[in-house]
């Protein structure tokens, strides 16, 4: 298990290094001089040169890459061109919205999908299965921003249970903030839960047709016992893969939902930074997201090994 963990850690490090080079080079080859963009059309050449110098745009490619990576390792992501404030602080604020929102949505998605998928698989072909399959089909098909707006109409405007948007900040109270994230989390979780429930169902059905389930039944286990004791853990591998991918998506992919609910999250921040050519912000946020994705994959791989003894032995 230790060797497996170390080998996964090594591959995590390599992924991050490769990603940082790719991101840095991609931003470098983009057209447009950020300093010229920030100062406008009538900028004086010497002001421009001064700003370029201040922003560190003058060094060699290698120096700038080393500066950028070195800064990130110290927690210093540089200064935003447009806002003139520390990128790490900006990311920090936004992360406190996006990360809880992603975790909230993922929790909802899992809590809905597991029982639904298990229920459908246990009653394959019966009414429960048909219902779950039908509802999840709808859940995948409905655009989540439309569903979000529908929820705003019903729960915020008509019933006035929730506010229509905005985020008070965690310092204004935990429950208040959680309440503000509830409608967005539901909107994000709905399609994810539908996909996850379907994956859970088909993974379980595959496992239930395995020979060892028949062996378990011949030992005297009921159908339910065979499912819980033998099928469930074996079916977890594909489910874990999907959960990992969903978390990465939820962290950065909530931009439309963030816009619907006026949430100051990472998705909106990166969108604004791209429009303003605030490259330092773009680079840093993308790198942070890559880090999150790689880290989640690492944790998913450790989870695989916890589920499956063959993986622990192989590495």
């Amino acid at each position: 298990m230790l060797r497996y963990t170390l080998s996964r850690l090594l591959s995590l490090g390599i992924s991050l290094a490769v990603a940082s080079v790719v991101i840095f080079l991609a931003i470098e080859v983009l057209p447009g001089d950020p300093a010229a963009y920030m100062l406008g059309l009538n900028a004086q050449p010497d002001t421009l040169a001064a700003l370029r110098d201040e922003l560190g745009l003058n060094g060699s490619l290698w120096e700038r890459y080393a500066d950028w990576v070195g800064g990130m390792l110290r927690g210093d992501f540089g200064t935003s061109y447009t806002y003139r404030s520390s990128v790490s602080e900006m990311i920090g604020e936004r992360l406190w919205v996006s990360l809880p929102l992603a975790l909230y949505a993922l929790t909802l998605s899992t809590v809905i999908a597991f029982p639904a998928g298990i229920w459908a698989a246990a009653r394959r072909g019966k009414a429960a299965d048909v219902t779950v399959m039908g509802v999840t089909q709808l859940g995948v098909a409905i655009p989540n921003f439309w569903f979000a707006m529908l929820m705003v109409l019903v729960f915020a405007i008509n019933l006035r249970w929730f506010s229509a948007g905005g985020f008070p900040g965690w310092d204004k109270g935990f429950w208040l903030s959680l309440k503000a994230l509830t409608l967005p989390a539901i909107a994000l979780a709905l399609p994810q839960a539908s996909i996850l429930a379907r994956v859970m169902r088909s993974a379980l059905l595959d496992t239930l047709s395995e020979d060892f389930i028949r062996t378990a039944r011949a030992k005297g286990l009921t159908k339910g016992q065979a499912l819980r004791r033998h099928a469930l853990r074996n079916a977890l591998i594909p489910v874990l893969t999907i959960i990992g991918m969903q978390f990465s998506f939820l962290l950065a992919g909530g931009i439309i939902i963030e816009n619907v609910f006026f949430l100051p999250g990472l998705g909106r921040m990166i969108f604004q930074a791209i429009s303003a050519r605030d490259l330092i912000v773009v680079e840093s946020v993308v790198m942070l997201l890559v880090f999150a994705v790689v880290l989640v994959n690492f944790m998913v791989e450790l989870a695989y090994a916890l589920v499956d003894p063959r993986l622990r032995a192989r590495a």
Partner: peptide, 9 residues
Amino acid sequence: EPMTALNPI
């Protein structure tokens, strides 16, 4: 099938 008759995990 002894290869698949046991729960692998």
